[in-house]
Computed example of a mutant assay.
Amino acid sequence: MQIVILGLSITSSWGNGHATTYRGLVRELVRRGHDVLFLERDVPWYASNRDMPRPPFGRTELYSSLDDLKERFTSEVRRADLVVVGSYVPQGVEVGNWVQHTARGVSAFYDIDTPVTLAKLARKDFEYLTPELIPGYQLYLSFTGGPTLERIERELGSPAARPLYCSADPELYAPQHREPLWDLGYLGTYSDDRQPVLNRLMLDAAREWSSGRFVVAGPQYPADIQWPSNVSRVEHLAPPEHPAFYNSQRFTLNVTRADMVRAGYSPSVRLFEAAACGVPIISDEWAGLDTLFVPGKEIFISHSGEETLRFLREVSESERQAMGMKARERVLAEHTAAHRAETLEQYARAVSSGRKP
Rank of each mutant, 00 (worst) to 15 (best):
L149E: 08
R154W: 09
E155P: 00
E155H: 04
L156R: 03
G157H: 14
S158P: 11
P159F: 05
P163N: 00
P163G: 07
Y165A: 05
Y165S: 09
A168S: 12
D169A: 09
P175Y: 01
Q176W: 06
E179M: 08
E179H: 03
P180Y: 04
L181F: 02
W182S: 05
W182F: 12
W182P: 01
W182T: 01
L184D: 02
G185V: 06
G185S: 08
S191R: 10
S191T: 13
D193V: 11
Q195Y: 11
P196Q: 11
V197M: 11
L198W: 01
L201V: 04
M202K: 00
A205L: 06
S211K: 13
G212H: 07
F214I: 07
A223P: 03
I225F: 11
Q226C: 04
P228Q: 09
V231S: 07
V231C: 10
R233K: 12
H236N: 14
P239M: 05
P239T: 04
P240G: 02
P243N: 05
A244K: 01
N247A: 00
N247S: 00
S248Q: 06
T252H: 07
L253K: 07
N254C: 02
V255F: 01
A258K: 14
D259C: 07
D259I: 09
A263D: 15
A263V: 02
G264L: 03
Y265Q: 05
S266P: 01
S268D: 10
